[in-house]
């Protein structure tokens, strides 16, 4: 989800470690303004505005967080918080990140409870759900293309898509079967290179 940019180098991060207040403000901003996925805004705040991490460090961190279970940006918040301010920093960053989105979600859910019976609301939300499904699919496709995948990686992605959406495999089964195959094919490629 991140923009590729070569405009900054490793030497340009902020000299001093950010304070707890700065971390909290940064992640609050990421949560509040990250409509339709927080990836792009997170990079903007962490690399461009606050300069907590250099571009390359951030890219590596995000790559790792994508593979780990959990929302990418939550994992980023955990790791950056811990890196600069220990476990308390990690807790603080996650809390700051989630605060605004949860509050907005509660407002939306309350409005939904009030108006869910009205045909216009139901129709609009059905359309919104279809659109949101498209957003998820489009985002996944864009991230996949950004990887500049070889045939092995494309096959891995299509296998995951097929077994879950067509065969109805559970997530656990899929991870246990496709995961090792993906790993083996990658290590085989590295060994051949």
């Amino acid at each position: 989800m991140e923009e590729e940019s070569t405009s900054r180098t490793d030497g340009e991060t902020s000299r001093e470690d950010p304070t707890c207040g700065a971390l909290a403000r940064g992640f609050f901003r990421i949560g509040l303004t990250g409509f339709g996925g927080v990836g792009p805004i997170a990079r903007d705040v962490i690399v461009e505005r606050k300069r907590w991490l250099a571009e390359a460090d951030y890219a590596r961190l995000v790559g790792l967080c994508q593979v780990l279970p959990g929302a990418n940006t939550v994992n980023v918040a955990v790791m950056i918080g811990d890196r600069f301010r220990g476990w308390k920093g990690a807790v603080l960053c996650v809390f700051a990140l989630m605060l605004a989105p949860i509050a907005i979600l509660v407002l939306l859910a309350t409005a939904y409870a009030e108006m869910a019976d009205q045909p216009i609301v139901r129709t609009a939300l059905t359309g919104a759900a279809a659109s949101a499904a498209g957003l998820v699919g489009g985002t996944a496709a864009r991230m996949l293309i950004r990887l500049k995948p070889d045939w092995r990686q494309i096959a891995t992605a299509l296998a995951g898509l097929f077994v879950v959406s067509v065969l109805g495999w559970s997530l656990v089964t899929t991870l246990l079967v496709i995961g090792p195959i993906a790993l083996l094919s990658r290590f085989a490629k590295r060994a051949a290179a």
Partner: peptide, 27 residues
């Protein structure tokens, strides 16, 4: 290496989520 290997699987799983979410919408 493990990171690079598993990322495409994650993308495939997200695509599957999109397909099932589109069905769930009943639109």
């Amino acid at each position: 290496v493990a990171t690079i290997a598993v990322v495409p699987l994650a993308m495939g799983l997200m695509l599957a989520s999109a397909v099932i979410a589109a069905k769930t919408a009943h639109a």
